[in-house]
């Protein structure tokens, strides 16, 4: 797999000291960790929102010149002003997007019923979908999301992650997302766990979840179904991790 960006010896305030990381093109990479581990700072660095002084090398060029290469959603900073959803989708810096394209993107993100609503009056769940629809139109190579599920209910989070997967498949872009909840990381191709600005665990999410003691020490809650699966596996009641409640119940009581 091709490399999308490389961070080498990144230093920032008291959090990061000689931090290095590589992101692979086309992956969904998630970064999780306890409070104050540096995940938001890291995603700001990747999005060039904080100074990185030549420590990040982008294989697709200079993100300052081609702004459309990076789509950034910092969950606490999104502000579209007093515009309607349709206006937000239509207005691009260079050209006006056709209404037909806006409707197509809106339909993909299931927001056709709120196109005439003002963005600043929407709830967190609607705003996120508007942002995704906007990114669908801009077609960035890299999507950055900072804890997008923070203000969503569990059901909304699950629906958002499924939508994000669909957008990923459609745009064939790279996604980097931070999250404070490991429950959001089940769709990731690769997962990093940070603690005090250092990578303490990385790899396939399921492999990371198995490091239960480290995750517990860091204050990270393993997704319930993973936790239960690992315990049932220990007693030889199931063979592998199962994230679906119904299929696990059928597996445990096949004859009923």
């Amino acid at each position: 797999m091709k490399k999308l960006l490389k961070i080498t010896n990144f230093n920032y305030q008291n959090i990061f000291h000689n931090f290095s990381l590589e992101l692979q093109e086309g992956n969904i990479t998630m970064i999780s960790g306890n409070n104050k581990c540096g995940k938001t700072t890291l995603i700001k660095a990747i999005g060039q929102i904080i100074p990185t002084i030549d420590t990040i090398e982008y294989t697709f060029g200079d993100p300052f010149i081609k702004q459309e290469n990076i789509g950034i959603s910092l969950s606490l900073a999104d502000d579209y002003g007093n515009q309607t959803v349709l206006n937000v989708l239509q207005n691009d810096e260079d050209e006006k997007v056709t209404i037909a394209k806006c409707h197509k993107a809106a339909s993909f993100c299931l927001i056709t019923d709120i196109l005439e609503n003002k963005v600043n009056e929407l709830n967190a769940w609607d705003k996120l979908r508007v942002w995704l629809a906007k990114e669908l139109l801009l077609k960035p190579k890299l999507l950055l999301l900072d804890d997008p599920c923070l203000f969503l209910t569990h059901d909304e989070s699950r629906a958002f992650l499924q939508l994000l997967l669909k957008v990923h498949q459609k745009l064939k872009c790279t996604i980097v997302m931070t999250t404070s909840s490991l429950c959001d990381t089940t769709i990731a191709d690769y997962l990093y766990i940070l603690n005090k600005g250092k990578i303490v665990l990385e790899g396939d999410p399921v492999a990371v979840y198995k490091e239960e003691h480290i995750l517990n020490r860091l204050g990270l809650k393993i997704p319930f179904m993973v936790d239960l699966s690992l315990k049932l596996q220990f007693y030889n009641l199931i063979d592998e991790i199962d994230l679906d409640i119904e299929s696990m119940v059928d597996d445990l009581w096949p004859l009923d």
Partner: peptide, 18 residues
């Protein structure tokens, strides 16, 4: 939202009558 630990028990009760 139903907590998953509650959801699991509910499903076992409903589907398997356990």
């Amino acid at each position: 939202d139903v907590p998953e630990i509650v959801c699991f028990t509910y499903l076992v009760r409903e589907k398997k009558h356990i």
